[in-house]
Simulated assay, not measured.
Amino acid sequence: MTAFAPPTVMTQGDPDGPLVVLLHGRGSRESEIIALADALPAGFHYAAVRAPIAEHGGFAWFANRGIGRPVPDSLRETMDWFRSWLDEVRPAGGPVFLVGFSGGAAFAGGLLLDDPHCYAGAAVLYGTLPFDAGLPTGPGHLAGVPVLVARGDRDQVIPRDLLDRTWQYVTAGSGARSTARRDPVGHALAPAALAALSDWLRAEAGGDAAA
């Protein structure tokens, strides 16, 4: 088993608010995705976590068999590493939201599939769920779980078959309480998608987030 270093984490917002974990894309780092917190609602505690695998000057959440296709053993190791950190820092009984972009979306999706009831919801932004990685993806597996899925119709990074499969599973097969949007952009977060993420967090947190 790989011995990963403890996570490097940047935080912003209200430490007493619902926890929103921001998961960056492949080759990026926590200091980049934490900038999203400036455009997201007040009243939340935002934590941007650095992925544990150094790669090409940045960091990755898992070893790949191809874009969007994690090596199952690698994904299992990094998910267990993440959960060890989360179990130490999550507020007792408090909600935890996952927000992942690109490779971070696949990682967020893996965490959600592995333990759907651990999270108050997950946003899968411009990425794919980690299909064929040893995680359950059967009908109704995410029944009632809030999931926001967003994709760019001009995305040339994530394979189209994975984008389509993710869209279909989240909006139909999974049973999730889904919010779905498509934007006329490539592999980059559209301003309208960021606004939709803000609205989704407010709606799902309800009275748990301070005004």
Score class of each variant (00 low, 15 high):
Phe131Arg: 12
Gly25His: 08
Thr78Asp: 06
Leu111Tyr: 08
His141Arg: 10
Pro7Met: 13
Gly27His: 11
Leu201Pro: 06
Pro130Ser: 05
Asp115His: 15
Asp14Lys: 08
Leu148His: 00
Gln168Thr: 09
Trp200Tyr: 09
Val89Thr: 15
Ala192His: 04
Val21Ile: 15
Ala51Thr: 11
Gly134Asp: 06
Leu111Trp: 04
Pro52Leu: 09
Ile67Phe: 09
Tyr126Asp: 01
Pro136Asn: 09
Gly58Gln: 14
Asp38Tyr: 10
Ala190Asn: 12
Ala150Phe: 00
Cys118Lys: 09
Gly68Ser: 14
Val49Thr: 03
Gly27Ile: 06
Tyr169Val: 04
Ser174Leu: 07
Arg83Asp: 14
Arg165Ala: 10
Gly25Cys: 12
Phe62Ser: 11
Gly173Met: 04
Ala105Tyr: 06
Ala209Cys: 12
Ala176Trp: 01
Ala203Lys: 12
Leu112Glu: 02
Trp81Ala: 09
Leu75Ala: 10
His117Pro: 00
Arg154Tyr: 06
Phe97Leu: 08
Ser31Cys: 11
Gly110Lys: 13
Ala205Tyr: 03
Ile158Asp: 01
Val9Ser: 01
Glu77Thr: 07
Asn64Cys: 11
Thr8Lys: 09
His56Met: 14
Phe101Arg: 01
Trp85Thr: 00
Gly57Pro: 13
Val20Leu: 07
Phe97Ser: 04
Val147Ala: 01
Ala48Lys: 03
Gly207Cys: 08
Ala35Met: 14
Glu88Asn: 11
Pro95Ala: 04
Asp38His: 12
Leu194Val: 07
Ile53Ser: 11
Gly100Glu: 01
Thr166Lys: 09
Ser28Phe: 04
Ala172Phe: 08
Ala39Thr: 10
Ile158Cys: 06
Leu40Asn: 02
Leu163Met: 15
Asp87Tyr: 03
Pro52Ile: 10
Asp153Glu: 14
Arg65Ile: 03
Gln12Ser: 09
Ala108Ile: 15
Gly17Asn: 02
Ala105Trp: 06
Ser84Arg: 15
Gly27Thr: 05
Val99Met: 00
Leu112His: 06
Ile53Phe: 11
His56Gln: 14
Ser174Val: 11
Pro95Val: 00
Val21Leu: 15
Ala92Gln: 13
Leu148Asp: 00
His56Arg: 15
Trp81Pro: 02
Gly68Ala: 11
Thr11Ile: 11
Ala188Tyr: 05
Phe4Cys: 08
Val99Arg: 00
Phe82His: 04
Ala192Ser: 13
Ala172Val: 09
Asp132Gln: 07
Pro91Trp: 10
Ala105Ile: 13
Ala180Lys: 06
Ala205Ile: 05
Gly57Ala: 14
Asp161Ile: 10
Ala180Asn: 05
Arg29Ser: 13
Ala51Leu: 07
Met79Pro: 12
Ala143Ile: 03
Leu22Thr: 01
Ile34Glu: 13
Gly43Tyr: 05
Gln156Met: 12
Ser102Cys: 07
Gly57Ile: 14
Ile34Gly: 12
Arg151Asp: 15
Ala108Trp: 07
Ile67Trp: 08
Leu111Ile: 07
Gly100Ser: 04
Leu98Lys: 08
Ala195Leu: 14
Arg69Pro: 08
Leu111Thr: 08
Gly206His: 06
Leu197Met: 07
Val71Ser: 04
